[in-house]
Amino acid sequence: MPINTHLRRRSIAFISATFAMLFFTLAMASTTEPLPSWQDGKSKQAIIDFVSRVTNKDSVDFVAVNERIVTFDNDGTLWAEQPIYAQLLFAIERIHSLASQHPEWQTKPPFSLILKGDVKAAFSSSASAVNDIVMAANTGMSDLEYQTIVAAWIATAKHPVTQKPITSMVYQPMLELLEYFRANEFKTYIVSGGGIEFIRAWSSQVYGIPPEQVIGSVMAQELATEADKTIIKRLPTMAFYNNKENKVIAINNHIGRRPLAAFGNSDGDLPMLKYVSEGDGLRLAMLIHHTDANREWAYDAKSQIGQLDKGLQQAQSQGWLIVDMKQDWKRIYPSQ
C-alpha cells in the first residue's frame, strides 16, 4: 500500500474518531442533569420550567437576552449567615487589628468589649454599638485600600463555628443555580444589605459575579488627593442602606430593568420578591427556608439574623415558592 494512501486512511480514521468523541461529549453535555445538588421536586422543576419557557423562542413566554435579569440576596441566600454576618465578623477582626492605633479603645465600649472577646455584650452595650463597630472597621481609607484589606481577609477568614474557610460556606445548590442561569444567558446580580465594596472585593472569585453586578449598602464618600492622585475616601456614615424597600429602589437605579426572577431568605427581601413577581409576563420568586439543623441551621420567625416571619405567610398569597433546604437540597456546601 502506498505510504500516502496509508497516512490518508490513518488521518481519516483519526478525524472520524475525533468527531465521534466530540459528538459523544456534546451528547453527554446535553443530557447532563441541570442542578444536580437539587432534589427532584417542585422547586427544582419550577426553576427548570421557568428557564425553559423564557428562553424558548417558540414560547409565548420568551424573553430577549438583554431582559434576562435575576437578582439574589447574599447572606442566607448564597452563603451561611449564622451565627453572625460575615461583614460583622470582618469588622470584629478588624477592630482587633486596629487596636494598637487606638489606645482609647481599651476602655471605651463597645471597642473595649470586643477586645475582651465579649461580642454579645459589645453589640448590646448601646443603641449605636453595631454601627460604631462597623464604621470604625470599614471607613477612613480609600476605596482601593479597602478592597485590598477585604480581599486579604477573605483569603484567610474562617467561619467561627465550622472553622472552614468563609468562601467554602457557600451553598452548592445556589452556585449551580447561578451557573444554570448564566448558561441560559441571564445576568446574575447580588442585591444585598451588605456593603457594596465589601462584596465586590470577592464576588467574582466566589460566585462568578463581576463587581458591576453587585448592589449593596453604600458608605458616604468624598474625592480627596493623596500623593497628587485623586482617591475616593470612605467616610464614617451610611449613605444608603440597601434593605427592604430600598432594594427595589437600588435595583431600579443600578439595573434600570425589573428582574424576571429573584431569590431571598428573609423578610428584608420581601419588597424585592414582590416587585419582581408583579412584573408583566412569566416571573419566578423564591424564598430559601433554613430548615436543616444538622447540615446547616434551622431558623425563621424567631431568629435575630435572617428573620423569616411575614415571608412564610406572604409566599402563600403571592404564589412564591419556598425552598426547604432539608428537603430540596441533596447537599448544602461544596465540600459535603
Rank of each mutant, 00 (worst) to 15 (best):
P103R: 05
V218G: 01
K229Q: 15
A220F: 02
M1R: 13
R53Y: 10
A227Q: 12
G208M: 04
P103L: 02
A137M: 13
E33K: 12
S168Q: 14
V63D: 09
D324A: 02
T237D: 08
A129L: 00
M238G: 00
Y171D: 03
K330Y: 10
D132Q: 15
A239E: 12
I12F: 10
I149S: 09
R94I: 01
G264D: 05
I305K: 01
R331A: 11
G117R: 08
K229S: 15
S204E: 14
T167E: 13
I69P: 02
R295F: 12
A152K: 15
G195C: 12
I92A: 00
M1A: 14
W329N: 04
I190V: 10
L270M: 14
Y189E: 11
S277I: 12
F181R: 11
I332C: 00
L78D: 05
T188H: 06
R200P: 00
F198S: 07
A20I: 04
T77H: 00
L115Y: 10
F19G: 10
I84G: 03
P109W: 08
S126W: 00
G216I: 02
S277W: 07
A91N: 13
W105R: 00
S43I: 14
Q314A: 14
E145W: 01
A127G: 15
V161C: 02
P334H: 07
K57L: 04
P236A: 09
F72P: 07
I12G: 08
L321Q: 01
H96Y: 06
K233T: 05
V63Y: 06
S43V: 15
I154K: 12
D309I: 03
Y85R: 00
V130F: 11
S192V: 03
F19P: 06
I232W: 03
I332Y: 00
F263Y: 14
S112F: 13
G268R: 09
R10S: 07
E33Y: 12
A46Q: 12
W79Q: 04
E67D: 15
D328Y: 03
I166Y: 05
Y146R: 05
D61F: 12
L273G: 01
R9K: 13
A183V: 06
N265A: 11
S217A: 10
F23I: 14
E179V: 13
L89H: 03
K57R: 08
R53H: 06
K120Q: 11
F240I: 09
F186N: 02
R257D: 05
V63P: 02
I154S: 05
